[in-house]
Design a binder for these strands. Structure first.
Lengths: 337, 337
DNA sequence: TCCGAGAATCGAAGCGCTTCAACAAGAGCG
DNA sequence: CGCTCTTGTTGAAGCGCTTCGATTCTCGGA
C-alpha cells in the first residue's frame, strides 16, 4: 500500500505538504501542487480512511437508518436511500446502512465509535424511542418525519397535512361534494407514524372548510383488501364521487376495482393518489397525484447534514410543499351544476 | 470521549489488557476480565473505529453494491440488502452502501482506502466491467450472479438454469404439452445479465427433454405489456396450457389478464411464477412458484466473505437449488389423457 | 534601508488503538 | 529444588494521517 510518505518522497516534498494539497487547507504553490498531484496519480495513492478518521476526527461517513415494516412502501425507501447515497457522494461522504432493527443502540454504537459523522433517520414516529437518543448524541442528525417533540432536532418531510388539503381542494374545485380517503393500514396509525395522521387531518380539515362530506378508511396493502374497500365505499357512500388513496401498493388495484364495479374513472369517480410520480404515471390510467418526493427528501436531508457539519445553522423544520399533478383520473363531479 | 486509557486506569490495568479483553486474542484472568468489562460499561466506552482500523488494518465494514436499473425488482434488492446488513451485524461488521453508479472506480476507492474489508456486488453481468477490477483488488469479494469468466472469484446465485427446468418438470408432470415463458424485459437480455438467459436455457432444454413445445417471450414490466402479452400468447399459441413468468412486476397483472380473457387459472391455464415467496403467496390467487431466495443469498454471501476474511478457502461457485412450492395456480393440463 | 505581512513549506506531535516482545508468577516435573 | 512451561500482564512501538507552530523567503511600504 502506498502511503503519504511515499508520495511525499516521490514529489520531493514533506508529508504535510501532500496533506495540504489534498485538503486545500493551506495555500500551496501551483508548481508544487501539480507535482504532488502527478505523484499521487502515478503511485495510485489513496489516503487510508482509518488513519484519516483518527487524525482528523472525521470519518466522512453518514449513517442511514432505513425502516423495515409493514405499511411503508419499499420502492420509496429505496429511492430515498439511493438519493442519500448520491448526495453524500457529491459531498465526498459515504453511507453506512443501518436497519431499524438496530434500534437506539445501533445509533449510539456508530456515533460513539466515530464510525459516522452524522445520521439520517427515516420513518420517525410521533413517540420514537430513538429521538431522545439522537438528541443526546454529540453528532448531528436529520430525521425524516416529525416526532411529537422535535425540540433540538432537525426534521424534514413532505407536508402531509398540506398534501391532504391540496387533494380536497383539487376535488372540491372540480365540484365534488363527497370524498373518501383510503389510507395506510391500521397498524401504521397505531404506531403513530405521523404522516398517516397528518394526511388524514389535512384531508378532513379541508373537507370541512370546503363544506364537503368526507370519510376516512385505513386499508391493508393488498389487492384483495382494495377490492373489498372499493365495494364497501360504493355500498356505504352512494354519493361518493371522489377518492384519495394514500397507500402505494393498492393504488392500481383500487382503481381497477372501481372500474370493474362498472364505474368509469374519472367520469363517475375521480381518484387522486398520494404516491411517487412514477407510479402515478405508469398506471394503466395515468393518475392525478401528489408526489412523494423521496429523491428530493434524500438530497435535502444530506444537505442539511452537511451544513450542520460545517457548523452552519439550519432550520429545525423543513416541510416540502405538496405538488399535485393533474392527470387522467380526475374530472368534474357528477353532480356539478 | 472516553478512550482505552481511561478504561485501563479505571480498571487498574494497562491499555493492552483492555484491548485483549475486548478482542479475546490473549487469555485474561476471569477477575481482570470482569473488572475491565465493568469499567467499560460504567464509562460507556466505545473503541474509536478509525483508530482500530488503523492499528489493526481491519475496518469491520463491508461494501454492498446495489443495482439501479430497469428489469431488477426493487423489493428483491431491498430484501437482499437487509439480509446482508443483518448477517454482517451478526459477524460484527457494518455495511457501506454503494450504488451501481459508482462503478469500478467506486470499488477501487473504498477498497484501496481501506474503508472496507470486503465487498458484495449484486447484479453481475456476463461481461461486467467490475469483474477485472474485483480480481485486482487485494480484498475479498463475493458476486451475486455469475460473469462469463469467474476465474479467481467467488460467486453465488440461485441456480436459474435449474429453476427454469424445475418449472417445466412440474408442468410436464401435470401433463402439459405446450408451455410458454414470459421473461425479463429485452434490455435485461441485451446487457447479458446471466439470470435471464439461464432461466431461458433451463426452460428450453427441459422442454426439449420432456418433448414439450415451448415458446419464450421477453416482456416489459408494466401491467399494460402484460395484458398485451396475454392476448398475444393466446392468439399465437392456441394449444398453450401453461405459462412460467419470470418478471416480478407483471406476475399478478398477467394472471389477471388471462382471467379476464375468460381463462380459468389453473383449470384452463396453469401459471408458475419465479419470484419471491411473499409475492406468490399474497397474490389474489396464490401462485405455484419457484422462490427467489434473496434473504438466503444475502446471508450466504456474507458468510462466504467472513470465511475468506478468516483465511479459509471457500467454493468458487455456489448455486442455490431452486425450490418449487405448488400452490393454487397449477393443475393438470387440459389435454391430459 | 528596514520592518512586517503574507505565502510556501516543513518537522514533529499526536490522534486511539493493536500487537509484539518481554517479563513476572505460578504450576508441573524429575 | 531447580528447571521448563504456561498463563497473565505490561510497555512501547507503530499504524498513516492531520495539524500546529516554526521557519524561510519575498515583497511592499514607511
Amino acid at each position: 500500500m502506498t502511503k503519504i510518505t511515499d508520495v511525499a518522497r516521490h514529489a520531493g516534498v514533506s508529508p504535510s505538504t501532500v496533506s495540504y494539497v489534498l485538503s486545500g487547507k493551506r495555500s500551496i504553490s501551483e508548481g508544487t501542487r501539480l507535482r504532488v498531484q502527478e505523484s499521487i496519480r502515478l503511485l495510485g495513492y489513496r489516503p487510508h480512511a482509518g488513519a484519516r478518521a483518527l487524525a482528523s476526527n472525521r470519518s466522512n461517513v453518514l449513517a442511514l437508518v432505513i425502516p423495515l415494516r409493514t405499511g411503508i412502501h419499499v420502492p420509496v425507501v429505496m429511492q430515498f436511500a439511493v438519493s442519500v447515497v448520491l448526495a453524500a457522494r457529491r459531498h465526498d461522504h459515504d453511507v453506512l446502512l443501518l436497519t431499524q432493527e438496530e434500534g437506539e443502540d445501533g445509533l449510539r454504537r456508530v456515533a460513539d465509535s466515530a464510525l459516522v459523522d452524522a445520521l439520517v433517520v427515516m420513518d420517525v414516529e410521533l413517540h420514537d424511542a430513538r429521538v431522545p437518543m439522537l438528541r443526546s448524541l454529540d453528532r448531528p442528525s436529520v430525521l425524516i418525519g416529525f416526532p411529537a417533540d422535535a425540540a433540538g432536532l432537525t426534521c424534514i418531510d413532505l407536508d402531509f397535512t398540506a398534501a391532504g388539503e391540496v387533494c380536497v381542494e383539487h376535488l372540491a374545485g372540480l365540484g365534488h361534494r363527497c370524498v373518501g380517503l383510503v389510507g395506510s393500514p391500521p397498524e401504521v396509525y397505531a404506531r403513530e407514524t405521523g404522516f398517516a395522521q397528518r394526511t388524514e387531518d389535512g384531508f378532513t380539515a379541508a373537507a370541512r372548510r370546503y363544506g364537503v362530506t368526507s370519510t376516512v378508511h385505513p386499508c391493508q396493502p393488498t389487492a384483495e383488501a382494495a377490492r373489498e374497500m372499493a365495494a364497501r365505499l360504493l355500498r356505504e357512500h352512494p354519493n361518493l364521487t371522489a377518492v384519495v388513496v394514500h397507500n402505494e401498493p393498492i393504488v392500481e388495484p383500487l382503481v381497477d376495482a372501481f372500474q370493474r364495479s362498472g364505474l368509469r374513472v374519472p367520469d363517475d369517480l375521480s381518484v387522486v393518489a398520494i404516491c411517487p410520480d412514477e407510479l402515478a404515471e405508469r398506471a394503466a390510467l395515468p393518475l392525478t397525484s401528489v408526489t412523494i418526493p423521496a429523491e428530493e427528501l434524500g438530497k435535502r436531508a444530506v444537505e442539511l447534514l452537511m451544513a450542520k457539519l460545517d457548523g452552519h445553522e439550519v432550520p429545525a423544520a423543513t416541510l416540502l410543499p405538496p405538488r399535485l399533478t393533474p392527470r387522467a383520473s380526475t374530472a368534474r363531479g357528477r353532480n356539478y351544476a
